[in-house]
């Protein structure tokens, strides 16, 4: 009753799921296992949060990673804030808010220190700071999944430096003529 694996692939491609009496049972099972793995990871993250986050060594590393990510994002944030570039980037399926609102939320979460450079924050920060950091992790994780869009951010970065250099170069060229 069950077609061979290769046959299944062809059927899938040909959109014959219905007609050939085929169920993707094993593939569904595979997906559900991965899905459950992610679910467990999220639960673990919240349990760490409720039980004090940095008390577990694994969670400490996790926070360190996240602070590094916050630093990175902080720099990008500064660029965005300054140049108001690309206001319409959409994170439609991951965030329910427009990009700028999300940035504002992040900024509000972080208060006066939007991108802490000091890595000792991890050791010394008050619980409240850590809590806000944890809240931010959600956003950062979502953003980090949008890696495909990072080339745009790189272009923005480059243009900030290149446009003045090229402009000055062109001006100099005019003077030297």
């Amino acid at each position: 009753m069950r077609p061979a694996k290769a046959g299944r692939k062809i059927m899938r491609k040909l959109n014959l799921r219905y007609l050939v009496d085929w169920y993707s049972g094993s593939e569904d099972s595979q997906f559900l296992q991965g899905f459950k793995g992610d679910w467990n990871r999220v639960c673990n993250y919240y349990i760490n949060h409720v039980s004090g986050v940095t008390e577990s060594p694994g969670a400490a590393n996790y926070i360190t990673e996240k602070i590094e990510a916050m630093n990175k994002f902080g720099r990008l944030y500064e660029i965005f804030l300054k140049y108001k570039f690309l206001p319409d980037i959409k994170f439609v399926n991951t965030l329910d808010k427009p990009f700028w609102d999300t940035l504002k939320d992040m900024h509000d979460f972080l208060g006066d220190n939007p991108y802490p450079q000091d890595r000792t924050l991890q050791k010394d920060a008050s619980y409240n700071v850590r809590y806000r950091g944890v809240m931010l992790i959600d956003y950062l994780e979502i953003l980090s999944r949008q890696r495909g869009r990072y080339w745009i951010l790189t272009l923005v970065k480059l243009s900030i430096y290149l446009i003045p250099i090229i402009s000055v170069g062109l001006l100099l060229k005019q003077f030297l003529k």
Binding site: R17, D38, R145
Partner: peptide, 19 residues
């Protein structure tokens, strides 16, 4: 339904935990 499964299975979060 098949297309949605493809979409979900191509997500980074699935890839991280897939068997």
């Amino acid at each position: 339904n098949e297309n949605q499964k493809r979409q979900l299975m191509s997500s980074e979060r699935y890839k991280k935990h897939r068997p």
